[in-house]
């Protein structure tokens, strides 16, 4: 009888743990307080969406910072020096993501890049750049957690227009590899791609603003939902509690007017391509200087 009671008690305990309460959206959004979002033109849509939502809810991602540059690639974005035509800008000054992380010391840095490489046709290299970011950020902002969003899907029309047949399948493979790489490196992988897909596996027509790769408001709302689900999963796994870091104050800037380190080398980018990357990209912690 005692054993039976103990068993029932254990079952109740396990069940109560397994079915954790769903936190309300406001609480889940606090996971992203004092965070830094980094990205390309897809992230520009995210920034505008944030402002649009804030017209109704001023607290929406209020203490987060969004830094995005259209056309920037994962390769260029991952570098510790300024290269190519496109750079991240913070306060209208060209900076690397490391410079910005150093200034803001965000709680988390959330990255969505890869559209402009394009990563689907250079997955191995892309994993090196992901690793490069994961290894380098701690040097500039040791307490910052690193998160990578899965690459958002593209439409069938994108494959035709850009002459990249089967590119969505390649992106699926990229996302799988990204997830594995993140697990190996101990950084976060936030899944936002799958809910954006239609039945055909491409970006759903209802979620795109250009019938190519950019998201409209409905698509961006799905993205936000993915972020909420991730925060809930972190809560359920016991890795995050709202009280633990539910502050809403904007990340304190340590040295707001710090200029970026001088650019080592300016790489020429041929017209018609978004960005260029060298034949071999470094994937170590070594400070990259000339010739990279």
């Amino acid at each position: 009888m005692k054993r039976l009671l103990a068993l029932v008690f254990c079952l109740i305990f396990l069940c109560s743990g397994a079915v954790a309460e769903r936190l309300d959206d406001q609480t889940l959004l606090s996971y992203y307080d004092d965070c830094l979002f980094i990205g390309d033109s897809i992230m520009q849509g995210f920034r505008r969406y944030r402002s649009a939502v804030r017209e109704k809810d001023p607290s929406f991602l209020e203490s987060s910072t969004v830094v995005c540059t259209a056309s920037i690639s994962l390769y260029v974005g991952s570098r510790r020096f300024l290269t190519g035509d496109f750079h991240f800008k913070y306060r209208n000054v060209d900076r690397t993501m490391y410079d910005i992380a150093k200034i803001l010391k965000p709680k988390r840095i959330l990255i969505l890049l890869g559209l402009n490489d394009p990563v689907g046709i250079k997955i191995d290299r892309a994993m090196e750049w992901i690793e490069y970011i994961a290894l380098n950020i701690p040097e500039f902002s040791p307490e910052t957690e690193i998160c990578f969003f899965s690459h958002t899907p593209i439409t069938e029309n994108y494959c035709r227009t850009k002459d990249r047949p089967g590119y969505q399948e390649k992106l699926n493979e990229y996302n799988q590899r990204l997830k594995e790489t993140c697990e190996r490196l101990g950084v976060h992988y936030i899944e936002i791609a799958e809910p954006l897909k239609g039945e055909d596996g491409y970006l759903a027509a209802a979620y795109t603003s250009d019938n190519l790769c950019h998201l409209n408001e409905e698509g961006l709302a799905v993205w936000i939902q993915g972020m909420l689900d991730f925060a809930q999963a972190e809560y359920e796994a016991g890795r995050w509690t709202p009280a633990q870091d539910g502050t809403t104050a904007k990340a304190t800037e340590e040295t707001p007017d710090v200029e970026p380190e001088p650019a080592a080398v300016e790489t020429e980018v041929s017209p018609g391509t978004a960005e260029a990357e060298p034949a071999q990209a470094p994937s170590t912690l070594t400070i990259v200087t000339e010739g990279d």
């Binding site: 033109s41 910072t65 830094v67 259209a70 913070y90 306060r91 603003s209 950019h214 408001e217």
Partner: peptide
């Protein structure tokens, strides 16, 4: 918002008495 003006353009609140920054919903 004022933060956008600061973060994107490096224009700080102490530099102006009034501003307006409006943007289209679609970046395209």
């Amino acid at each position: 918002y004022a933060e956008d003006l600061s973060e994107l353009m490096g224009i700080e609140p102490e530099e102006y008495v009034d501003f307006v920054y409006l943007a289209g919903t679609s970046v395209e």
